[in-house]
Amino acid sequence: MTIAISVSKLEKVYASGVAALKGVSLEIEQGDFFALLGPNGAGKSTFIGILSTLVRRTGGDVRIFGRDVDTHLYQTKLDLGVVPQEINFSQFEKVADIVMTQAGYYGLPRKLAVHRAEKYLKQLGLWEKRDTRSRLLSGGMKRRMMIARALVHEPRLLILDEPTAGVDIELRRSMWDFLLDINSSGTTIVLTTHYLEEAEQLCRNIAIIDEGNIIENTSMKKLLLELDVHAYILDTEHDLDADLEHKEPGLVLRKVDSHSIEAVVSGGRDINSAIAVLDRLGIRILSMRNKANRLEQLFLSRLRESGNGSG
């Protein structure tokens, strides 16, 4: 299996003295769909910045498809497409011009550039906006334009720094489909996100980074298996007793407010046991929902273990 990204002992200390990465080692396989998670300021964008050469590392090595970025700068840049977290295109230019200019920077002959620009602007739903000045696009459109721009030279590796921030739900789903499609046609994708659902839906492997260190690097499947704690909120029909509380192995019930109960189920038991208990108490359930994304819980508990979680 070819390794798309291989970094070892990656370090970055900014001129301001901030140590953003403290010896990050990571391998991402070709063809993978990889999520890099972590709280604000963890070092995700710094990591991506180093891959794209916008940030100069202060230690460690980077290889892209097996090539050292220092000695094979041209080829490694050609292999890479980056969608940055912050908007970084000229506000005064038209959408199509921005994408065409990018194609030129990557050496695409004009005919091919025109073809690719049309292809990706259409795929990202921006074809009608091609003659609009980029400053007049909505936030979500700007993000999609940056994806089209990153794809115009058809890189083998696409890196997206929070691609769906500020994108509405419907569009986010269509963006997911789009990314899955590109991935299944062979492009390795790495993304950072704060929407854990996104990582769960899209990614095969993940790493969690916190304060410049990798604190978890595993497959999404394994990660979800490790999770056997589920929390639910149950809405009840009638007012609850003031002192409702129930504890037994694998099940904790606790009153949240006058009309809702939190049920935490673990150790192989399921929600039926909670409903049975409540039934015995004569409490009727109207509706039920997951308290939080499971991944979110895991994420928070990992951060807590690593000593940073606010909880």
Binding site: S52, T53, L54, L73, Y74, Q75, K77, L78, L80, V82, P84, E86, I87, N88, F89, S90, Q91, T101, Q102, Y105, Y106, G107, R149
Partner: peptide
Amino acid sequence: FSQKFQRSVEELLVAPI
């Protein structure tokens, strides 16, 4: 400078030029 300011200079810096 305006490319620096708008960060569109990054388009150039990331590209293999």
